[in-house]
């Protein structure tokens, strides 16, 4: 677990609800009930229209308690100060995957990132990279899901052998770890256009890296995608959205991680699946930055999945 995630509460005053740590815009609660660790911070939030139009930062000053997550604070800003603040959230416990964003420059889930554990007086919140901004902290997830087949499974057997199973249950199963939050897509330098690793001679595809790190990611990805399309007669699924980012050079870590899980579930479909994984937009573009695995809030390690696919024979590429 990262250092910024919530840990067991150790409030000095067990009777004080977390809400006693309230925004500076509200009447202050009685000082006697205010937890001592409460601090006043600046939350700096990127605001924009679709496509990042008119992007700027808005600052909010508010007092933050030791248990407050970034999501708790966003909720408070929205309810008490600015109802037009747009961000995605649903489960509040790292299962749905909607609240991934860049927090002080790193991809994290807002729901399990404690504000005070970040250790900065200003906490900067920005939308994920690699995916089109729809507004403020919300990105369009469709380009990522364009490459994860909706019919791929999402349930797997549990890892631990059990000493028994209940009547009528053949084996214990569980949901996949990947919550499809997009953190890895944003962190991947190949996907987000910040790849500054020198070109490797061993790279199988000449269009492995965007042409220039100085280019905006969108432009670089778009150019690289057009080049990739010229380089190959294999095309992406026709139901991809029209946005140029939907047909990127590299489909990215999350779809490849999902693909590797589907391979484990359906070894009989190996050729078909490897055709995607080893195809013109697949694992060949990974340059082993490992940023995806570092960014994953859910213990998936997509870089390992990508290397698994790279090592496999099949898909017409070996």
């Amino acid at each position: 677990m990262s250092d910024a995630e919530k840990t067991a509460p150790e409030s000095p005053d067990a009777t004080a609800p977390a809400s006693s740590v309230s925004s500076s815009s509200l009447p202050s609660p009685s000082p006697a009930t205010e937890p001592q660790q409460t601090r006043t911070l600046t939350v700096r939030v990127q605001r924009s229209g679709p496509g990042g139009a008119n992007a700027r930062f808005d600052d909010y000053r508010l007092s933050v308690g030791p248990e407050d997550s970034v999501l708790d604070v966003l909720d408070r800003i929205r309810v008490e100060t600015d109802p037009t603040l747009v961000y995605r959230h649903s489960c509040h416990h790292s299962s749905c995957g909607t609240c991934a964003m860049r927090i002080n420059g790193r991809e994290r889930l807002a729901c399990i990132t404690r504000m005070l554990a970040l250790g900065t007086d200003v906490v900067t919140l920005e939308p994920l990279r690699s995916l089109p901004v729809l507004g403020d902290l919300m990105v369009d997830m469709r380009p990522m899901f364009a490459h994860i087949d909706p019919d791929w499974g999402y349930v797997r057997p549990v890892e631990k052998a059990s000493t028994g199973v209940p009547h009528g249950v053949a084996r214990y199963t569980r949901l996949e770890n990947c919550i499809e939050c997009g953190a890895c897509m944003s962190a991947c330098p190949v996907s987000n256009g910040t790849d500054d690793m020198p070109p490797a001679t061993a790279q199988p595809a000449q269009h492995a890296a965007p042409q220039s790190t100085r280019q905006p990611a969108r432009q670089a990805a778009s150019q690289a995608a057009s080049q990739a399309a010229q380089d190959t007669d294999e095309s992406l699924p026709t139901d991809s959205p029209a946005d140029p980012l939907a047909a990127p050079l590299f489909i990215g870590p999350a779809p490849l991680a999902a693909l590797n899980r589907e391979l484990a579930r359906h070894p009989e479909r190996r050729e078909e699946l490897l055709h995607i994984g080893k195809g013109p937009h697949g694992e060949r573009h990974c340059r082993r930055h490992m940023a995806c695995s570092r960014a994953c809030p859910s213990g998936v390690y997509p870089a390992k999945d990508i290397m698994d696919i790279r090592m496999m024979h099949g898909g017409g590429k070996d």
Partner: peptide, 11 residues
């Protein structure tokens, strides 16, 4: 509509 449009108008 709570989101901003491309002209910067919100609400």
């Amino acid at each position: 509509t709570l989101t901003e449009d491309v002209h910067g108008a919100r609400g």
